[in-house]
Amino acid sequence: MTKYVMKRLIIGLIAVVLSVAINFVLIRVAPGDPITIMAGMDNPNQEMIDHLISKYGLDKPILTQFGIYLSNIARGDFGYSYRNNQPVMGLIGQRLFPTFLMTFSAAILALVIGSALGLAAARTRDSRMDRFFSSISYIFDAMPGFWLALMLILLFASRLKWFPTMGMINMRAGYTGWAHVLDVLYHLALPVICLVLLNVPRYFRITRAAVLQVMSEDYITLFRASGMNEKQIFRKFVLKNALLPTVTIFGLSLAGCFMGASLIEIVFAWPGMGRLLLDAITKRDYSVLSGVYFIFSMMLVSATILVDVVCAALDPRIRLE
């Protein structure tokens, strides 16, 4: 088991370094550069351009830039955002929590609701409930997220006025303490509902398929023939076998939690990572981009390792290497 985990940690580290290198190159190869944006369109002054270039180290060879960047990252310094005039680390820090709050609560809810529905549907296969949820799951799975978000806002925020249309807090009220928590929850509801609706179908279908597959295995027939009652078979043997695919999907979507859901965040004006990323892309904010991508690759790698370890704990066949 130690060898199993070590192997994954090393591969993970290599993956992170590679992704940092690829991001670094891709961002610089992409058209557009920050200097023209900073210097302004109207009256570009050559002196100012030269000054900016040397200030941000863009006059150095690209390999040297990469070396400086790597050593900075190693020291925990992700550079300075020219757009926001503050360190990248601080920017990401501010955005990480709102994003995580929204996506993580949505992921947990989607997991619980989706798997519960999937289990229920599998146990009453071909019942009216099973057919209803199976068909509706395709509709929500195929629905574009931003469109659903807009529709939810139109219906529940604009028309019914049950929820706020945007943001994470009521800026004017300036609540503190519990009032602040409630205010955040109130703003959180609609984006979370939107994400849950979009993600439930995945868990529903994976769980349903896994349970049906396990139920048709020979060992389940054997347990039935032995006189074991259905409840016990289900709890003791079906669940653990059917759990594996759901664990994998959930683990990977956990990584997605940190990346945020850019389009949903934009539609709901949620101050999260996804919006930070899109802003950074349009404004060619290199250091923010690299920082965000670094965090993403770290999270993805950690989540993958976590999934591997949990799956190995659940399934002895995976431990075998």
Partner: peptide, 8 residues
Amino acid sequence: MNSLSPVH
């Protein structure tokens, strides 16, 4: 080969 649960 399938008459036993693989994870127990």
